[in-house]
Design a protein around this nucleic acid. Structure first.
Lengths: 380, 380
DNA sequence: TTTGTTGCCGAAACCGGTTTCGGTCCTAAG
DNA sequence: CTTAGGACCGAAACCGGTTTCGGCAACAAA
């Protein structure tokens, strides 16, 4: 009788093996089976092995959300994408998610993705995801220099790992791409090619990475014995359009830069835009380096020299770091840095013009450049 | 006593309101409360309202996975990204996910994302996600012309909604961007500008959209009274590199095309690549149209004319369609089409050269073009 | 032989829900 | 005035797990 209905249910339900099935097959109570599988010390090694083997053989996998209702942990890593800046996430998202889910699924975990419109929204969503036990914690993408998410999660003791290094990162677990060194390398590369007048276009300063990249530029300049001219530094530039505006400002200078270092590939698009409009030859009359290794970089012509970063690997690293943290909440913080490497392409070359010659070359276009303001960057 | 431990637990657990709390506050059993909230007919309207209001007031939200253990439904929509073709998903993923989660979270649902390497892997992962009750069904991105996922899910009666129209879509619920009409429009646009020799570079033919786009091209040609020359059609082109190869083949023809219609923006990159290499002016000597409205399109110079598609909207549509389907499994299929619209940019213009003149112009470069094979497209 | 320990497992409560099954009470028909 | 039938709710089982508690057997020390 009983076994009849059991079988019946089993066959409709796609034959999931439950802990009860397993315990019956082993002539043990389900409590014992559960403790055996979870490595409780009051189970003899012999029966533990017996249980583990049977579970393996019968293909038993516990229902994580059935566990969750008692344990409170749902083995799911939360990921909230904030969409206020439309472009902020696109280039790296797919590969990054791939890495994240790869790490997650390897351990039988799940990735729960949510999106939000505003910062306040993000906090609310994260809180509710945890309360609904839909996430055991979070991976924080694109960490801000002073990140309210970190404040919230720390205060509420919700586990998280940062992708990026914020202002005070001493006691935080993070993974980051080392971009300071990259920017120094970029400056060095420009210098090696013979550039002296090297400009920098930086992204929105509330992002943590903006700080590291700018510092890298500054240190690179110092190391090369160059004094970074404040006029050559545009910070807080958000979009390609803003970057174009910034570029016009740079080219309107008395001594325009022969090389421009951009904090992101998207910003480099702005440089290209202006250069294309006035017929300035990229890679010779002006050189450009970006950062991100995005597909845009190879859509530009000449191809943009940029720092390619392995977002897949970043995802894997962050995923495993997160799971480890949940498993061992009291372990010391883990801080990982990954190097990115420069992909040289056609956008960098020896300067064919000195800054003075460049200025002369640009003279006819001053009308198009003049309307830009000295401080086109938008500070947050 | 009892209430003491209760409070204690509550305060650590971030004060989640459970159904027991609610039932005690209302002096009802939790069974009654549950039935009231789920609209059972054996609950009087008066108490139903009382329960619903109290739930609202106390901020009660049921734990979906606690429900799931009895009901089998976890209110979670599954999304498996296959990464075999690295580039296949990137451009549209972020915005699409945004739409999906927007629709999901609005209804209190969750999005569970997984990735897979191969097709077989995808099927395995989907099956296991359902078995582990981590997904109630799936949104299928990038539907193939003959899609094994559809076969599997149909056979196992797992709910799903397609993003795209496969070969036999009569009885399927789908959402799709109408690209056939777009391609016809593109051809028409070329013709209006004065082009006659119009080539087509199509993407991997196992994708469903490839068929619709190619058919659109063919119909557009017919409508314009032009006979599509088989030599002008390259199908099964996967990457920008392959598209470059295809382009070389096209330009090596006796009567090379003055206009090239590409099934995706990525393929258009290949056309640009070749044009840039041999100094062919895009937008005058040769015109190009892409499809996708990706950021690459505006990274190219001149900007690529392309069809922009609202992936956000697509995500919202698919999400709500999916949830509706779960709620009402026996409802008739829903089939939705969304129009995309052409964003004209610098890559299209009136031809300044006839095909013959173009061939003459290209004569010096035949050496670079000749090594291409007539049939560079890779058929699957 | 008695008395602790210790190792090991069963029994049962529990987690936060859903669902079935009766059992009142009220009402209308006989 | 009975009685059949609904309307409405409580009681309890259930879902698939985890965790606490207690008891039994074996073994060592007294």
């Amino acid at each position: 009788m009983r076994s009849d209905t059991k079988l019946d249910r089993r066959s409709r339900n796609n034959a999931r093996v439950t802990i009860t099935d397993l315990s019956q097959a082993l002539c043990l109570t389900k409590g014992t089976v559960s403790r055996a599988l979870n490595g409780y010390p009051d189970i003899s090694e012999a029966t533990r092995l017996r249980v583990v083997r049977a579970a393996q053989a019968m293909g038993y996998r516990p229902l994580t959300h059935a566990q969750a209702i008692k344990t409170g942990r749902s083995r799911s890593i939360g990921f909230v994408v904030e969409l206020s800046q439309k472009d902020a996430h696109r280039p790296f998202l797919a590969e990054f998610l791939a890495g994240l889910t790869q790490a997650a699924s390897y351990e039988g975990w799940t990735l729960t993705v949510a999106t939000s419109e505003t910062e306040a929204d993000t906090l609310k969503i994260m809180r509710s995801l945890v309360q609904q036990q839909k996430a055991d914690g979070f991976i924080l993408p694109r960490v801000l220099w002073q990140d309210p998410r970190i404040a919230l999660l720390s205060a509420e003791k919700i586990p998280f790992i940062c992708y990026g290094r914020p202002k005070n990162y001493e006691n935080l677990s993070y993974f980051d791409i080392e971009s300071e060194l990259s920017m120094r390398e970029a400056v060095q590369h420009f210098v090696d090619l013979g550039h002296q007048q090297i400009a920098y276009i930086g992204s929105a300063t509330h992002y943590a990475f903006s700080h590291h990249r700018r510092d890298g530029y500054l240190r690179g300049m110092n190391e090369a014995g160059l004094v970074p001219d404040p006029f050559l530094i545009k910070e807080g530039v958000v979009s390609a359009e803003d970057a174009a505006e910034a570029t016009r400002g740079l080219l309107a200078l008395d001594e325009p830069p022969t090389a421009v270092l951009c904090a992101t590939d998207t910003l480099a698009r702005g440089v290209y835009e202006v250069a294309n409009q006035i017929g300035l030859k990229i890679g010779s009359e002006i050189s450009v380096i970006g950062y991100d290794g995005s597909p845009e970089a190879s859509a530009m012509w000449p191809h943009l020299s940029t720092f390619s970063i392995d977002n897949r690997k970043a995802g894997v690293a962050l995923g495993t770091m997160f799971i480890d943290r949940i498993r061992e909440p009291d372990a010391p913080v883990v801080q990982t840095l990954l190097q990115s490497h420069l992909c040289r392409a056609g956008s960098t070359g020896a300067p064919v013009l000195s800054p003075e010659q460049l200025a002369h070359r640009l003279a006819p276009f001053q009308g198009q450049l003049i309307h830009s303001h000295q401080n086109s960057g938008r500070e947050r």
